[in-house]
């Protein structure tokens, strides 16, 4: 299996006033193409920090980050947007859909930021909404959808740009357990049928059940 992400001794220090806070204290981690990995850890253990670094939302303080074999530890700031747009799909705990846009428009958003024509973007977005079972709700605004439905739209938005990897930060955290299970089943289905590489971040061990691999993070270390 070929490696998509390789982290070597990553540290992250938050400087706040006088005291420095070490959120990650030397994390090494491999993610292979086609894997579905769960990163589990208590609240405040550094999971989101790790995801932000892997997802090009943030820079690590020290260490080496290889993405698809390339050293990306020091990519200039202005290239990050393009990388996020092309390579990464995010799913967040509170869905983070734009309230003024309907499900279809929300799903189209990543494509519009890469100059895809509106017609093509619409076509692709509808296809994605179909995959997550939301095509009948394409014209609905987020506030007209349930939490589970919103998360499905968010997953469609993460998938629409055909990214190399999807990062889901506590994707079931705002959902009741049954809906949460549905969402996890969707991720599992996407991993199995669509060969998506998926990283699920959660503090809830039960969520990580159908992941192939579970990585536990504790106090900034992988154990």
């Amino acid at each position: 299996m070929s490696s998509l992400i390789s982290l070597e001794n990553i540290t992250k220090v938050y400087r706040s006033g006088l005291s420095d806070f070490h959120a990650l204290k030397g994390v090494s981690f491999e993610l292979n193409i086609g894997e579905m990995v769960a990163i589990v850890g208590a609240s405040g253990s550094g999971k989101s920090t790790l995801m932000n670094i892997m997802g090009f939302l943030d820079h690590c303080t020290t260490g080496k980050y290889f993405f698809a074999g390339q050293d990306v530890s020091c990519v200039p700031e202005q290239d990050l947007a393009g990388i996020r747009n092309q390579k990464i799909g995010f799913v967040f705990q509170s869905f983070f859909l734009l309230p003024r846009l309907n499900a279809l428009q929300n799903t189209m958003l990543p494509l519009l930021y890469r100059q895809t024509s509106t017609e093509l973007a619409k076509e692709k977005a509808l296809l994605m909404l179909e995959k997550v079972g939301m095509v009948n709700f394409a014209k609905h605004k987020p506030n007209q959808l349930s939490g589970g439905q919103q998360q499905r739209v968010a997953i469609a938005r993460a998938l629409v740009g055909e990214p190399d990897v999807i990062f889901a930060d506590e994707p079931t955290g705002s959902l009741d357990s049954a809906t949460g299970r549905d969402v996890m089943d969707l991720f599992h289905h996407l991993n199995q049928q669509e060969k998506c590489t998926i990283v699920i971040i959660t503090h809830d061990k039960s969520v990580s059940q159908n992941c192939q691999r579970i990585v536990t993070i504790c106090d900034g270390h992988i154990v």
């Binding site: 947007a81 747009n85 995010f90 930021y113």
Partner: peptide, 12 residues
């Protein structure tokens, strides 16, 4: 933040 996460550039 959402727009930046899905790949909007600063110019966008």
């Amino acid at each position: 933040g959402i727009r930046l996460a899905v790949g909007a550039t600063r110019a966008d």
